[in-house]
Design a protein around this nucleic acid. Structure first.
Lengths: 184, 184
DNA sequence: CACATTCGATAGTGATCGCTACGTTATGCT
DNA sequence: AGCATAACGTAGCGATCACTATCGAATGTG
């Protein structure tokens, strides 16, 4: 008793939505823009994704999952310093990639504070592990350092959106690393 | 040959506009919200301020002038380190002030990249002066350091908007200062 | 084939957007 | 007073917002 099959690729449409939310943010991305970009009529969009807010949640969750994948790979490096350095390098590269929107959806969109806090917690945990592993000083304040790192990431995203070059982003990361505690 | 006098305080109305643009950003602040907050009917608003974009330009310029006033006072301190430390302290205090919108209009609004670059140049010049004064190492890269500082400021603004406390902002600033070169 | 079911496209809902035409009211100048 | 000028409030402009009612098209099942 199946009905007429869907004539568009749901995943591809979702990726188009991700790209527009990424580029313009939630508020500035209209349904008509989305339907055009996704190649879908409004009723089909609502049937497949609910309303605009649910579409955004699904799109941002998809984006966040990809982000966390890369983050976890970076944080798996042997020392906390290597891990954070790798995270910064990845961030600079992705934020300045001309084939995608500039900056980062998660770091730019005011609505995604929960995701940012999740990143902060992962960083804090990785720093704590570094402290236990002895590759960071015993007195290292993981909460404070993680909050700082998220702030820097956010600054990098904003810099990229303002037209900052890959060199600018790399310079921000390199300078931030000077605040990162030494193995001592 | 003067006509009917204006029945509202133009400066007070402008300040109300500043506050709403500050809190919600340019796009999310509607004319109807502004007219309500400013106590002015739409035709009066347009007569006094032009269109929405010009009102925003005037509002953001007012905000920026106040910001620069504080910034210049901070940067007038004897050493570059003291200057930047003061700037960070002021920023943390203002961003978390519960009597005003959270964060910073200039640092949050995508449209104000020109103002951010102006701040970056002032920081760069102050750092350069510190290098010439000898309170920073000769090899200090002022451009790079200024770009980093603006990124941190932006991160602080975002943190404040996400509900970060004054302690969070102060911690970000303190950690960032560890990346600031020593007099050596 | 006939039927139930689900998707698709057209067209349009009320609400709000930025903005303004219009007629009235309040001032200074003569 | 009478006139020119400018701001006032009301009311509404066309455009766009997020969203949906309606109906025809395309499937699997009997």
């Amino acid at each position: 008793m199946a009905g007429r099959p869907r004539s568009f690729d749901r995943d591809a449409a979702l990726q188009a939505a991700v790209e527009h939310f990424w580029r313009d943010g939630y508020e500035a991305t209209s349904i008509s823009t989305l339907t055009a970009a996704m190649g879908v009529s409004p009723p089909s969009l609502y049937a497949a994704f609910g309303d605009k807010q649910r579409l955004f949640e699904e799109a941002s969750a998809t984006y966040f999952a990809r982000t966390c994948e890369g983050l976890d790979q970076a944080l798996a490096l042997p020392t906390a310093r290597e891990a954070v350095q790798r995270m910064f390098d990845d961030t600079a590269r992705v934020h300045a990639d001309p084939t995608t929107p500039l900056g980062c959806l998660m770091l730019s969109e005011p609505l995604l504070a929960v995701q940012r806090d999740e990143v902060r917690r992962r960083l804090r945990d990785r720093i704590d592990r570094g402290r236990r592993d002895g590759d960071l000083p015993p007195g290292t304040d993981a909460e404070q350092l993680a909050t700082f790192l998220v702030a820097v990431l956010r600054g990098m995203s904003g810099c990229a959106r303002d037209g900052g070059t890959l060199d600018d982003l790399t310079a921000i990361a390199a300078t931030a690393m000077k605040a990162f505690p030494s193995p001592a």
